[in-house]
């Protein structure tokens, strides 16, 4: 049973109050990413737009063509604000594609393991154990080294390094659900296996997985950023937030902070907001579950 509001520690109460803010920030960022082509003053992925004469302008300066660089420009003459908007698009796109793929794979494996039990279960779960014994970043690095660069490769790396979390979570809740009466009733009606799993079992296992997925989404964003920062992720001509930070980092010692700082702030905000929104959704879901 969830603790009553009277007993809520102040920290949790504060989190509960700030949750809508994080949700709002998340939605704003997603909206900004989707609307990037209309919001951004420049298309930073069109190489023909990049002029070295407009490189490394500090924030709030105008270039010779009269364009205002609100957050400055980077070493190639990219408007930092535009690059952030487009980069956010890449970061969120790659992370959500990776998360979706991981979720699909994890759900399938987890349900399979729970339904069949026995040797299938043991094999799948040992595979999960094996994978979880490696640090995520190591798995992703090895994959990228083998696959090469590119956003599609990052998606695969994210999916491969994250599916195990979902598989384990789904298997746990599916095993609990399988003991319940409605499953026994469905079996008693001699419904086909696929129908029982997809229509009855799956929907009831979904809540914890969705919560996990939001948290993993934040992890996927930071994984993509890490890979790109290390130069293994997206191509240099289509930078994501992580690559923008890496590109600007070499100018930090020279005092030209803006190329790294602003993408960094946005990356941080994205990860924190999504994670907090996920937590909040998770607690809601847990509360909902208790009242069932």
């Amino acid at each position: 049973m969830s603790p009553g509001m009277r007993g809520t520690p102040p920290r949790q109460a504060a989190q509960a109050r700030s949750a809508p803010v994080f949700a709002l920030v998340t939605l704003t960022l997603i909206g900004a990413a989707l609307a990037a082509p209309w919001l951004a003053p420049q298309d930073p992925y069109d190489l023909a737009n990049l002029l070295l004469d407009h490189a490394r302008l500090s924030p709030l300066t105008r270039d010779e063509a009269g364009m205002l660089h609100l957050l400055g420009s980077d070493d190639q003459g990219r408007d930092v604000l535009s690059a952030i908007l487009y980069g956010l698009r890449v970061s969120l796109g790659v992370a959500s594609a990776g998360t979706t793929l991981a979720l699909a794979a994890g759900l399938t494996a987890g349900l399979c393991a729970a339904w069949h039990g026995g040797r299938t279960d043991a094999m799948l779960m040992r595979l999960v154990d094996l994978q979880l014994s490696f640090p995520t970043i190591l798995v992703a690095l090895m994959l990228m080294a083998a696959l090469g660069q590119g956003p599609d490769k990052v998606v695969i790396a994210i999916a491969v390094s994250q599916w195990a979390y979902y598989a384990r979570t789904v298997r746990g809740s599916a095993r609990v659900e399988l003991q319940r009466d409605y499953i026994a009733a469905a079996r008693g009606l001699a419904l086909p296996t696929r129908r029982i799993v997809v229509r009855h079992l799956l929907p009831n296992c979904l809540a914890p997985v969705i919560v996990l997925a939001t948290a993993q989404m934040a992890a996927a964003i930071s994984l993509e950023a890490t890979l790109s920062f290390l130069g293994l992720g997206v191509p240099v001509t289509r930078p994501s937030l992580g690559l923008l930070i890496a590109n600007g980092a070499q100018y930090v010692f020279a005092g030209q902070y803006w190329m790294s700082l602003w993408p960094g702030v946005v990356l941080l905000a994205t990860i924190v907001a999504i994670q907090q929104a996920g937590h909040w959704a998770g607690r809601k879901a847990a509360g909902g579950g208790a009242s069932r």
């Binding site: 990049l50 002029l51 070295l52 190639q76």
Partner: peptide
């Protein structure tokens, strides 16, 4: 080196040569 290559790719783009950049 990689930044130079990227800048040259941008300069080529402005005369219509589309570059696939590999660093």
């Amino acid at each position: 080196d990689a930044r130079i290559a990227q800048a040259v790719a941008a300069m080529f783009a402005r005369v219509g040569v589309r570059v696939r950049l590999v660093t």
